[in-house]
Computed example of a mutant assay.
Amino acid sequence: MGHGQAAAQLRGGLMAAVTIWLVLPFLLSAAATWLARGYALGKSLLDHPGERRSHAVATPRGGGISIVACVLLGMAWIAVAHPAHRVSMAGLATGLMLVGGIGWLDDHRPLSPLLRLFIQALAALILGWVLYQATGAIQYAALAFVAVMVLVNVWNFMDGINGLAASQAAIAAFGYAWLLGAGPWLWLAAVLFASICGFLPFNFPRARIFLGDVGSGALGYMLAVLLAAAFSLSPAPGPALFLLLLPLSAFLIDAGFTLCMRILAGERWWEPHVQHLYQGWVRKVGGHAGVTLAYAVFSLLAVILMLAAVGWTAFWIVAGAITWYAAGILVWARLRKDVQLSKEAGQ
C-alpha cells in the first residue's frame, strides 16, 4: 500500500469517526429532549410568564437533562477508549452529575441559593483536583475552580431567551475543539457541541422546552472543563488565558457589568431580574430570534479572532484580547443606553 493511499485511508477513518461522534450525540440528544419535554409536561414543570420573564406562554423546563445524559455517555466512551483518562473522566462525570443534579432538583422545587453554591463549589473542587492530578500545577486547579464558579452562574443568569445560552455554549465548544486538537479533549468538546445542537431545534427560534437549571448549569460547568483543559495544555498559559476568554466575552461582559450595576445599586443581585442587555433588547425589538442571532455573530467573530491569534506573539495576543473586550464593553454600553432611551420614550 502506497503512502498516499494509507494517508487517504487514515483521513477517511478519521472523518468517519468524527461523523459518528457528531451525528450520534445529535440524534440521541434530540430524542432525549423530546422525552424530557413529555416528562416536563406530565409533571407540570413549567415556566410561567411574568414580569421577570421574557416569554409569553407557559413553557416546559428541564430540557438540558438531554445534554447532560449525552455528555456523560461520551465521557464513558472516552474512559473505555482511553484508559489513561479514566480517572479524569470519572472526576469530570462526578462534577457534571453534581451540577446537573442540583439543577434538576431545583427545576422541580426551588432550592436555597447557598445549597446550590455549595454543590457547585464541590464540583469545582473536583475539577481542580483532576487538573492538579494531571499537571501537578496548583494554578491550573485554581483556574478550574474559579471557572466553574463563574461560568455555571453566568450561564444561569444569561439563560433567559430562546436559544441564547445553548447557542453561545455551542459556539464556544466549537472554538475550543479547534484548539484542543486530537485526543480525548477534542472528543469531549465535540460531544458537547453535538449534544447542544440536538437540543437547539426544541429551543430556537420557538421554545418548546427550556434548558432549565439542569441545562444552564451543566453548560457552564462543561465550558469551564474545556477552558481549564485548553489552558493546561498550552505551552504559554498566560497569553492562552486571554485567548480562551474570547469565546465567552458576550456573556462575561453582559453578566459581569449588569451584576456590578445591581450590586452598586444595593439590589438583591442573586434574585431573578430583567436588567441584562439581552432582556432589554428583546423588549425593544419585540422578539427573541434577532437578539440571539446578534449575540451569536459577536461570539463567532470572537472565535475567529481566537483561532487567528494562535500564532501571534504574546504581546499581540494580549493586546488583541484587551482590544476585543474594550470594544465589546463599548458596544454593550451603547446598546444598553439605546434600550434605556427606548424604554423611557415608551413610558
Rank of each mutant, 00 (worst) to 15 (best):
H3W: 14
R11I: 11
R11G: 15
G13L: 10
G13I: 07
L22R: 06
L24V: 14
P25E: 12
A30W: 09
A40V: 04
G42F: 06
K43D: 09
D47M: 08
R52T: 15
G62V: 05
G64T: 04
A69F: 15
V71T: 10
A76D: 10
M89L: 05
G95V: 07
G95H: 04
L96P: 02
L105A: 14
L117H: 00
L117V: 01
L117W: 02
I119P: 01
A123M: 06
L125R: 09
I138M: 15
V150Q: 01
V154K: 01
D159L: 01
N162F: 04
A169S: 03
A173S: 15
F174W: 12
G175M: 07
W178A: 15
A182N: 12
L188Q: 05
A189S: 14
V191Y: 11
A194W: 06
A194G: 07
A194S: 07
I196E: 08
I196T: 04
G198F: 00
P201Y: 06
F202Q: 12
F204R: 11
F204T: 07
R206A: 11
A207K: 04
V214P: 02
V214A: 05
V214W: 03
G215H: 08
L226P: 11
A228G: 06
A229E: 15
F231G: 03
S234N: 10
A236N: 01
L246F: 12
P247R: 01
D254E: 07
A255I: 08
A265G: 01
E271L: 10
P272G: 11
P272C: 07
H273Q: 09
L277R: 00
Y278K: 03
G280E: 03
G280A: 03
G280V: 02
R283S: 04
K284W: 15
V285C: 07
G287N: 08
H288P: 00
H288F: 00
A296S: 02
V297K: 02
A302D: 03
A302S: 11
L307G: 13
A309P: 11
A309R: 10
W312V: 07
W312F: 07
A314T: 11
W316P: 08
G320S: 08
A326L: 13
I329L: 15
L330D: 08
W332A: 14
W332Y: 15
W332T: 09
A333G: 09
R334P: 01
L341W: 15
S342C: 08
K343M: 12
